[in-house]
């Protein structure tokens, strides 16, 4: 335990100064991408024919379910299962997309909450933009 944490902290602070240091770094890779494309033996979320058919429909396609498609989807699913690597087996029943991490400023540095006065002020300043096609024209659009 101690040895590992020591090793870890040493790793973090390792300065590269010489050619030997570089060689040591480059010749000791931490992992391989093959780990990502390996398939799990007991994948508990193999996509069935029925599910593939449903997903095709949800995507607005008329296509038939082909073995090729099912295979590639299952491969992609295996890949995505890597999200849970190293974690305890959990039953992934909870399905809810109620969260999103974005790199939008107001998500992280919230503006001050809106007051009525501000809101009314903003409304006064609304201005349609020609650039956005918001100004009315009497021709039919394409």
């Amino acid at each position: 335990m101690f040895k590992r944490s020591l090793h870890k902290s040493t790793r973090l602070l390792r300065q590269i100064k010489t050619k030997e240091d570089i060689d040591k770094l480059l010749n000791n890779p931490t992992w391989s991408v093959k780990e990502l494309s390996s398939s799990k033996q007991n994948s508990n979320s193999e996509i069935t024919h029925k599910t593939v058919a449903k997903m095709i429909k949800l995507s607005g396609f008329n296509d038939e379910v082909t073995p090729e498609l099912t295979k590639s989807l299952n491969l992609q699913m295996n890949f995505i299962e890597k999200l849970y690597d190293g974690e305890e087996e959990e039953v992934h029943k909870h399905s809810n997309n109620d969260s999103i991490f974005r790199l939008i400023a107001s998500d992280h540095i919230p503006d001050k909450p809106l007051t009525l006065k501000q809101l009314q002020e903003e409304i006064k300043n609304l201005k349609p933009s020609k650039e956005k096609g918001e100004i009315r024209d009497d021709k039919n659009t394409p």
């Binding site: 939008i104 809106l114 009525l116």
Partner: peptide, 9 residues
């Protein structure tokens, strides 16, 4: 963006 409303609203 998220809508944030002040409690005075």
């Amino acid at each position: 963006p998220v809508i944030r409303i002040d409690e005075s609203m």
